[in-house]
Design a protein around this nucleic acid. Structure first.
Lengths: 213, 213
DNA sequence: GGGTGCGCTAAGCGCTCGCTCACCCTTGCC
DNA sequence: GGCAAGGGTGAGCGAGCGCTTAGCGCACCC
């Protein structure tokens, strides 16, 4: 594992950059509420209440409820790109870097499940402009993973016929963790990350390196 | 491929069993609307409008908007269990049956994407009683796939350490197809089914049988 | 051919939504 | 102390929500 270790684990949220304090508390409350009930089922009164404020306070810091979702989605996607980019540019061969990328990406989806849920499943609730901006970030996510797989195929480490399809499947596997992962369940984010890294190495035909531990 | 072929492909919806005709039209309209915008963002006026009826007509056939979602979810989950059960009890060894199960399950999620989206992503919008009923069906889904993998491990066809975790990953991979599959995209449901069947065989260590075509 | 019941509609009830507005504290500068 | 500025509140607006009700048209039956 490389430097992605620190940036991906746990819930050391990236919300520190959001100021002022009241705006950050509102954003955090919105993340929780959106993750629990979904964007459309969440009321502005609920968000303000979780942040310990009156409903009107929300509109001092954000123009609309949608702006909250947009901000959350952009920060989350930027974090996702950063995690994968760090792993992709790490040391070691394609197999090590792919395993690193998958395990840190999975740890982020499992550990920061509330954030990841909003990021991955509420895209359709955004308006056209905001959605287009987020989709550009998603293409970066795809490109990082595809890059590692292409390199592995070129070097002979991987045996993959449909590179784009396999990239899609690998990302899909990681993303869906946000749907089913349960914090009170039997697995830690680290365990799921290790399991998935092994499974993905097998998917790309990385041979013995992909054996499950 | 076995008999699961016919039952899984295309959009030969199972809604034929819903009567009378007006109730079926309303259910179909609800599936479309829920899949497009989500349960909470869909209004009863929208559903009735798509079915060519006035808003009040909905309440002649269904007690509440939630009953519509409940009915859709139950019918969809029963179909999912049926697809996997048919594949699991088919002919051939564990590898053939697992490939069959994955490819038909994926084809159902891709081809019937509107239905599958509602079934897989709107579970949290149900009330406690309805959710409990649906969760029981999900345990059956899990059990069918786990059964095939366990058998493959016993017979030596598969090499899997964490059977439950791998089962979860396989199902997760299939289910997430409903999130990203695009009818206007470059792949047909059959192509995705075949690709995924190969990837899954690799995940369970089924050796040469899992090579991609 | 008049009565009956069913599928459906027009109108609207009570409620909650996203959001606004007039006003109030606290802080800091002169 | 006077006062501007900005973060915050209580009350409430217009709109749209899920759902109800009174009544209408029409196929069917004796």
């Amino acid at each position: 594992m490389s430097t992605a270790e620190e940036t991906a684990g746990g819930e050391a949220e990236p919300w520190g950059e959001v100021t002022p304090d009241a705006a950050r508390r509102l954003l955090l409350a919105a993340v929780e509420a959106f993750a629990e009930r979904g964007y459309h089922a969440t009321t502005t009164r609920d968000i303000a209440g979780r942040a310990g404020m009156s409903p009107a306070a929300l509109y001092i810091h954000y123009k609309t409820k949608e702006e909250l979702l947009h901000r959350i989605s952009r920060i989350g996607h930027e974090k996702a790109v950063e995690i994968l980019r760090t792993a992709a540019r790490g040391e070691g061969g394609p197999a090590e870097r792919l395993a690193d990328a998958v395990s840190s990406f999975v740890r982020w989806h499992a550990g920061g499940r509330t954030t990841a849920r909003v990021v991955q499943y509420e895209l359709d609730s955004l308006g056209p402009d905001a959605r287009a901006e987020i989709l550009a970030l998603r293409r970066q996510v795809d490109a990082e993973v595809r890059g590692i797989i292409e390199e592995g195929v070129r070097s002979g480490d991987f045996d993959v016929v449909d590179v784009q399809g396999t990239t899609l499947a690998v990302l899909s596997l990681c993303i869906d963790v946000a749907r089913w992962f349960n914090v009170d369940g039997p697995r830690t984010p680290e365990q799921v990350g290790a399991l998935y890294a092994g499974l993905v190495l097998r998917m790309v035909g990385a041979g013995a390196a992909g054996a499950q531990r």
